[in-house]
Amino acid sequence: MPSACLRVEPNQVRATVLEMLYRAGASHLGPCMSVVDILVALYGAVDVEAIRQGRPDRSRIIVSKGHCAAAVYAVMHHYGLLSADALADYCREGSLLAGHVSHAVKGVEHSTGALGHGLPVACGCAIGLRSRGDEGSRVFCVMGDGELQEGSVWEALMFARHHRLRNLVPLVDNNRISSITATDRVIDLQPLENRFAGFGFEPYVVDGHDVEAIQEALESIERRGEPGVVICNTVKGRGVPFAENEPIWHYRSLGEEQFRAALAALAEAMRQ
């Protein structure tokens, strides 16, 4: 049963992410902020209770851009999968919650950190579900657009298309900035929909900060019954004005004034 009734507010998640990053002196603010709405949409579209219980028939969410761990853990927290105490340990000595997602954290399907790993693993999950006759579960894989420069992504797409893996849905956090600069200045893959269409995936291009639009795209792919990809156009650093579209916020950690300013900006956005 989908968890949409929980009504998680993305900007509240962003505020949680800010607190985690600030307390830990951690980086990756930019890619965390761009992916929040995608993750809120995904966890809202699946049966979170099945994930909590680790049921074999659960839908699987694999976050391949593992550097957005703070966002993943914050969303899991807001969906009731991780306690506040656990979040408080983020990047602390001895914690299981590191700067990249870890399967040591209950509810996380797969550890990622090196890019281009998630989609092949997601393919394995999808083909495994099919092999054992489980038609109801789906596998979602969240990637960054910079990550698409990894060749293994396209190996997996070819495989998924050939095997018509209808239960597998890749989603791209298309924030257009990779590690140190704009993706179109490194390897220009835009428009992404053409690339995916060429590999046999029906592209669904949505506003990546519109939770309902993302969930509608997921439903459309399921109804159509053919391989489809959700390209989520996002803003890196979304919600934190001084960090939006600034590559340095892949690496920079928040000072106290910046933290207060960012929280205030989110509070203002939630008031509007």
């Binding site: 399907e109 797969h110 281009g116 092949p120 394995g124 999950c125 083909i127 495994g128 092999s131």
Partner: peptide, 15 residues
């Protein structure tokens, strides 16, 4: 690369 990633995913399902 896909060979190994898919194998890992199958383990997630208990294979």
């Amino acid at each position: 690369q896909n060979l190994i990633g898919i194998s890992a995913g199958l383990c997630n399902l208990g294979y």
